[in-house]
Amino acid sequence: MTAGTHPGEEHGGSINQRLNWLRAGVLGANDGIVSTAALVVGVAGATASVPALLIAGMAGLVGGATSMALGEYVSVSSQRDSERALIEKERRELRDLPVEELAELTELYRERGLTPETARKVAEELTAHDALAAHLEVELGIDQHDLVNPWHAALSSAVSFTLGALLPLLAILLPPPEWRVPVTVVTVLVALAITGSVAAALGGAPRIRAATRLVVGGALALTATWLIGTLIGGTGLV
């Protein structure tokens, strides 16, 4: 589940949750690719020093991965707290207002297309089996046994960002000096096209449009930082 999602919006089974984590991982990798590439290309515009490129790239990788992990942990922790509060609220209502809650569940099933008689029977049977689970699923889309895990989210974000950041870092360090920037730019744009297409496929969006947006945005970021690095390098400050 992505950060900021209202509880219940993206629940619907473990498959959907795994897809949400996969989408988040792809987006984290994109962040790692773009931010690190922009950083090292900017430095490469100012200096050909390998230690400078390595230090800048590693600093961007570690700082970005840490920031992503902390941000995701805080966001998902807040979401988990909200889900737990909703579960406790539903538990209290079932304890204090059982008749009203049964009527509410019946109405929810009737709104889904069941006849009043069938809706009442389904509500009564589910209430007898597990009233809390029935209400959480129909009202809020929450599975009390499958709440989001902030540690998983933090680790996933850190790992995906790191993997994405390693690509431009290796691309800028391995080629000869005159090929560093061109190789990095091509590698990054191809990677963004691929990850953009994958993210679009997972989200059911048009692949070409999503990939194009990422490639254009990445190209603009790389151009801007390279120009800035070249200008600063030309002043003799580096």
Rank of each mutant, 00 (worst) to 15 (best):
G12P: 02
G13I: 09
N16T: 10
Q17W: 14
N20D: 07
L22E: 05
R23V: 15
A37R: 02
V40E: 00
G42R: 01
S49D: 03
M58P: 00
L61M: 08
V62T: 07
G63P: 02
G63Q: 06
T66G: 08
M68L: 08
S75Q: 07
S77V: 12
S77E: 07
S77C: 02
R80P: 06
R80T: 11
E83L: 05
L86V: 13
K89G: 14
E93M: 03
R95K: 10
D96G: 10
E100N: 09
L105Q: 03
L105M: 00
T106C: 11
L108A: 11
L108H: 10
R112Q: 15
L114A: 06
T115F: 11
P116T: 02
T118R: 14
V122R: 04
A123P: 10
L126P: 02
T127I: 09
A133L: 05
L136D: 04
E137M: 04
V138Q: 14
L140I: 03
L147S: 07
L147M: 00
V148I: 09
V148F: 01
H152T: 14
H152D: 12
A153D: 14
T162F: 00
L163D: 10
L166K: 13
L167G: 11
L167F: 15
A171R: 08
I172N: 07
L174G: 07
P175M: 01
P177R: 05
P177C: 05
E178I: 08
V181L: 04
V183P: 02
V190N: 06
A191P: 15
L192S: 06
G196Y: 02
A200D: 05
A200M: 01
A200F: 03
A200L: 03
A201L: 02
A201V: 02
L202C: 04
G203P: 08
G204Q: 06
R207C: 06
R207T: 07
L220M: 08
T223W: 14
T225E: 07
W226T: 15
L227F: 11
L231R: 10
I232M: 13
T235K: 15
G236H: 11
L237D: 07
